[in-house]
């Protein structure tokens, strides 16, 4: 946060966010039925992120977690719902105001290969944000880029090199430097360590934690790895088929998961730190987001599913302070 600004209210507030993709391309828009070709990537997602907090988002492929990160940053236009950043509704901003706000919210990507332009030097890549917003002199820009590279553990001597001359972990550091050089308040980390080897993963995680302290950052940390999310997050949101099924403080959610899906996820993670549990893996596959099941979306795989689950979508209920779950099992107070 910039000093002097109002420090009240959440930094990011998301309400009823929906994002549907129309898969019909070109002339097929006129020949095909809309309903059969609409992907429900996000279907009514609401949450707040407090200043200085890390909100972890966990879910399997196709649950909409990456779409969430991009829609929150308004890199994608939502189909419905609002995103407020520091009190300002993003949808109401004109192009100039939006561009100014871009400096304050950044993103770190998963794929260290696709996220850096192979034809641009490290200096050009990392310096882009400065060139757009602060517009320093070339000498000053070089100084600032060098300083930033040092912060993320790279040598300023690397400035004139191209991305293909770096390893995956180093590339991820370059991506982080590009995002942080504009001194943002909020960073979406979209699976930032998923493509990396275990020993490198730990380096990047430690770097992100260190930078969060140093720059006073707020993170939306998206991952499919429960252990990683559990480690870095203050709170965790569990997503399934475009919806948040459970949201709560990290430690509590991992120790006493409420939603049957969260429980199944936790059970399915193979761990080094536990005796081989006797568990029954969750059956079936995630249904297609083209036609999500009616009622509770998890009912097709849920061991506790009832007739009610098949027809009525559950509301979010509070099972403990700050711990919400969308499941009929918790109707009428905490179970």
């Amino acid at each position: 946060m910039t000093a002097g600004m109002a420090q009240t209210g959440p930094l990011v507030a998301v309400r009823g966010l929906r994002k549907h993709y129309d898969l019909r391309r070109g002339l097929r828009r006129f020949t095909e039925d809309a309903r059969a070709h609409t992907v429900h990537a996000l279907d009514g997602v609401s949450f707040d992120i407090a200043r200085g907090e890390t909100l972890g988002v966990i879910g399997e492929s196709g649950c909409g977690k990456s779409t969430l990160g991009r829609t929150v940053l308004r890199l994608l236009e939502p189909t419905a719902g609002t995103v407020s950043f520091d009190g300002a509704d993003l949808a109401g901003l004109d192009a100039a105001a939006m561009k100014a706000l871009r400096r304050r919210m950044q993103i770190v990507f998963q794929d260290p290969y696709a996220s850096l332009n192979p034809r641009r030097t490290v200096e050009q890549i990392v310096g882009l944000g400065l060139a757009i917003h602060a517009r320093p002199s070339p000498t000053r820009l070089r100084e600032l880029v060098a300083e930033m590279l040092g912060r993320v553990g790279l040598s300023p001597a690397h400035m004139q090199r191209y991305p293909h001359q770096f390893s995956g972990g180093q590339r991820q550091r370059i991506g982080i430097a590009r995002a942080l050089i504009v001194e943002p308040d909020f960073v979406v980390c979209d699976e930032p360590v998923s493509a990396l080897d275990v020993s490198i993963q730990a380096q990047i995680l430690a770097l992100l934690e260190e930078l969060k302290r140093a720059f006073d950052l707020t993170y939306l940390f998206i991952s499919h790895d429960l252990a990683v999310v559990g480690h870095i997050s203050d709170r965790i949101a569990v997503m399934y088929l475009g919806q948040i099924v459970e949201l709560g403080p990290a430690r509590r959610l991992l120790q006493t998961p409420a939603h049957p899906y969260t429980q199944a996820l936790l059970e399915a993670v193979p761990r080094v730190d536990a005796e081989a549990q006797d568990h029954r893996p969750l059956g079936g596959d995630v249904p297609s987001p083209l036609k999500p099941p009616p009622g509770c979306r998890f009912h097709t795989r849920c061991p506790h599913a009832t007739a009610q689950c098949r027809s009525i979508a559950p509301e979010h209920r509070t099972v403990a302070p700050g711990h919400h779950v969308a499941c009929h099992l918790y109707e009428g107070g905490p179970a």
Binding site: R70, A114, L116, N117, R120, L128, G129, I132, H133, A179
Partner: peptide
């Protein structure tokens, strides 16, 4: 569709920059 184009958009880069500097060289 590459993330580096998304990154440029996230930084507020103009369409002209994206077309001429990010995409064209590739």
């Amino acid at each position: 569709e590459m993330d580096y184009v998304e990154a440029a958009r996230a930084l507020g880069a103009s369409q002209r920059h994206i077309m001429l500097r990010e995409i064209l060289p590739n």
